[in-house]
Amino acid sequence: MKKVNIGGVPEHFNLAWYLTLKNGEYKDQDINLRWHDYHGGTGEMNKALRSGEIDMAVILTEGIIKDIIDGNPSKIVQTFVETPLIWGIHVATDSKFKTIEDIKGSRAAISRYGSGSHLMAYINAKNNDWDLQEDLNFEVIKNLDGAIRGLTEDKADYFMWEKFTTKPIVDDGIFRRIANCPSPWPCFVIAVRDEFIENNEDTLKIILDIVNQTTAEFKSIPSIDKTIANRYEQELEDVQEWLSLTEWSQNVMDKKTIANVQEQLFDLNIIPKKVDYTELVHEVKR
Rank of each mutant, 00 (worst) to 15 (best):
L204F: 10
R176H: 06
F97P: 01
S106I: 02
G43L: 08
L119T: 08
N212E: 13
I224K: 04
V261E: 05
E153F: 11
N199H: 12
D194T: 11
N72K: 09
I31R: 01
E233A: 14
D55C: 04
I64M: 02
N143H: 02
T99N: 01
I141R: 00
D157T: 04
E283N: 12
D94M: 11
V261R: 06
V192F: 03
S223E: 07
G114K: 03
K126Q: 08
C187E: 00
E247A: 05
V284D: 05
V281D: 01
N200F: 07
E237K: 14
E247M: 05
A121D: 10
H39D: 08
E247G: 06
V239P: 04
G114A: 10
A125H: 01
L236N: 02
P84E: 09
D172H: 13
H36Y: 02
I64Q: 01
L144V: 15
F164R: 01
N46Y: 05
L60Q: 10
I69R: 06
W161H: 10
S223R: 06
H90G: 04
T83C: 08
K27M: 07
S111R: 12
W248P: 00
N14T: 05
R34G: 04
D171I: 12
W248S: 04
Q264R: 13
G173M: 12
I6N: 07
K47F: 06
D131M: 07
V239W: 06
R177T: 14
L208I: 11
N269Q: 14
T99M: 04
L49Q: 01
D135V: 09
D135L: 13
R231Y: 13
D67N: 11
E247W: 05
E53V: 11
N260I: 13
K155N: 10
W248L: 05
M253W: 03
K104I: 11
P272H: 09
W87H: 09
R286T: 06
C187S: 09
E82T: 04
T203W: 00
A121Q: 10
V275M: 10
Q234L: 15
K255I: 05
S74C: 07
W185N: 03
K256L: 10
V189H: 01
K155A: 10
F218I: 12
V4G: 00
G88C: 08
N143C: 00
F196Q: 02
W35R: 02
S249W: 03
M160S: 02
K255P: 00
D94N: 15
K219R: 13
Q264L: 15
T166Q: 11
D131I: 06
D28Q: 14
E247K: 13
L243F: 08
K142A: 11
D209M: 04
A259Y: 05
W248N: 02
L243Q: 07
S223H: 09
E283L: 08
F175S: 07
G146F: 06
I69T: 06
F80R: 03
T20D: 11
T203H: 05
S51C: 08
W130Y: 13
K167C: 01
F97H: 12
V239Q: 06
T20P: 01
P73R: 12
A108R: 00
I228L: 15
S51G: 05
S183E: 05
T203G: 09
Y277F: 15
E241I: 12
D209N: 12
T278Y: 02
G105Q: 13
D194H: 01
V275S: 09
Q264M: 15
V4R: 00
G40W: 05
L245A: 14
H12Q: 14
F164H: 07
M56L: 14
